[in-house]
Each structure stands twice: as C-alpha cells, then as structure tokens.
Design a protein around this nucleic acid. Sequence first.
DNA 1: CATGAAAGCCATGGTAA
DNA 2: TTACCATGGCTTTCATG
Lengths: 156, 156
Amino acid sequence: MKSNPAIDDIDKRILKELQVDALLSHAELAERVGSSPASCWRRVKALEHAGILGPAVRLLDAGKIDLGVNVLCNVRMRSHARASIEEFEDFVARRAEIMDCYSMSGDWDYLLRIVAVDVADYEHFLMRILLGHPSVATASSHFALSQTKYSTRLPV
Amino acid sequence: MKSNPAIDDIDKRILKELQVDALLSHAELAERVGSSPASCWRRVKALEHAGILGPAVRLLDAGKIDLGVNVLCNVRMRSHARASIEEFEDFVARRAEIMDCYSMSGDWDYLLRIVAVDVADYEHFLMRILLGHPSVATASSHFALSQTKYSTRLPV
DNA sequence: CATGAAAGCCATGGTAA
DNA sequence: TTACCATGGCTTTCATG
C-alpha cells in the first residue's frame, strides 16, 4: 500500500494550506492553490471522506495555562497478554494528561508524553496513577527542559 | 506566576470546545458553553490576544499520506556552546520531518520525533542529515511500532 | 468526467441599543 | 446581554473543455 488514490499537486497544496490555517475560506483557499472555490470544495470533501483530512482543532499555549511541564516517560509492562495491553491502552486514552503514547521497539514497551503543572503534580500522577496501574511494571521519567519545537504540520 | 488574569469557567469551556472543533460558529459555541454569541466572540478575541488561544490547524492522518513511521531519537551534542545550540535549534525548526523536539534533562540533550515514509527514508535522514550536522555528536533511534495516542487537547 | 463560472440562499460576524 | 442588519461564504446548478 503505497500512494493513495489520486492525490495530485493541488490536493497537496490544499493539505499544506489547511494544516497551517483551518479557518481559510474556500475562496481564499482556491486563490492560494490556484483553483476555483467549487473545485476546492469538492476536493476538500473528498479528502475528508478518504480520512486524509482530519479534524480542525485549535492549539493552546500550554505554558499560558500552567501546563508548562512536559515529561517523557518510558513504561515497561508487567505482561504482554492481550488483556493487559488493552487495559493499559484504554487507560492511556482516558487520561487527559497523557498527550501522546507510542508503542516502542527496544527496551521499553511504551513512550508517553505527559503534561503537568509542576514537578509535584507529575509526581502525583506517576506514583498514584501510572505506577498504580496493574499492567505497569516500571517506568522511567525524563523531564523536558523546554519544548524546542512542536509541530502538527506533516510534510506532504 | 500561577494562574492567568481572569480565566473563568466559561473561558475554560470555550478552550475545551475549540480544542476539539475549531470550526464551531460563535452561535454554537455560545450554546455549548452557556453564553451569548457576542460575549463568546469577545472572550475568544481576548484569549487570542493573550496568546492562550493559538492557531486553528487541520490535522492529517499520517498513515494515509505515507508517513507511517515515527522515530524517537535521542541526540547528544558535541558542545554546549551557545552558538552550537542555536545552530542546532534553527536546523530543527527548518526540517519538516522533525515534528517535535524537547531539550532534555538527563543523559541526552534532545529528544526528537521524526516522521518518515519507511525505514530507508529514516536511515537517509539519520545518516545524511542529522548525523551530518556539525553540532551533533551522537544519536540513538527508537522506532515506534504504533502511535497509540496522539492528542492536541490539553486538559484545561 | 472534472473543471470553472454564476447565483441564491443562508448563516455569520459585528454593531448598536 | 439581546436584537438587528449587512456582509460574505457555502452550496448547487449549468455550461464548457
């Protein structure tokens, strides 16, 4: 499964623009990608329908709402039984402070990114919530000193 | 510097809603947070002006545009001279395949998340681009088997 | 068959009270 | 906060290459 059914150059430009500004009108979008509003509208619909073009979201400045602490946390599971895995991934999905989670190759099973207001807040999450989970054997936390880059803009 | 000047409950609800759907009209938004459209409009403007409410972006399905490979990469710098740091962070900002970058405490200086189309694509990035950078001493790459969770929705 | 132009309806943003 | 109005975008239709 390589390339998708018919993503041409104009589609790519649409994706590029919409990744940067989801509030663009179809008229402006058409102008920027060199097409007409109606055509743009149809293409956007098709891209949405194909699941390529996802939701429009508003990004917040984490620091400004007192969530300045990013912690990267490696997790090792107690068991790799299917039930354990599912239970843990459900848990991850439900916890709002867990922003991202990757199932990893290598020494650790998962890598989590957690946002917290301060170190004490994270300590509470780690001790009472994460390590309290029955599927979790051990965890190793690494604090980010700063978020040098954070992008939602995929290279199309 | 704890809480921000006057973020009340309605503001929080606005932030919550807009994080999930940036395309909400002020009328719908007002209904959901229990306020009037005009008031919502002013609040949104204020939150934008304060830098709390950031850009509206459209999220793409990385897998659907052949960027299914996520790599987490630890980087150690050759030197911590200011010039080295700045040069590296500029480089990070410019490279589109580097999605996120955290300056870390602990053994490594940075943690990068890179998207790639496949392993060969990543290998090229690692060998020719990242390790080719004069500020980089060494790097350790870890492949994500899957992206279990990816959220842009901060808990307000 | 997809595109581009045109047009009407409707909802929205912004203002005034 | 509510009510209003004008603006502009969305969506469909139609003709064209």
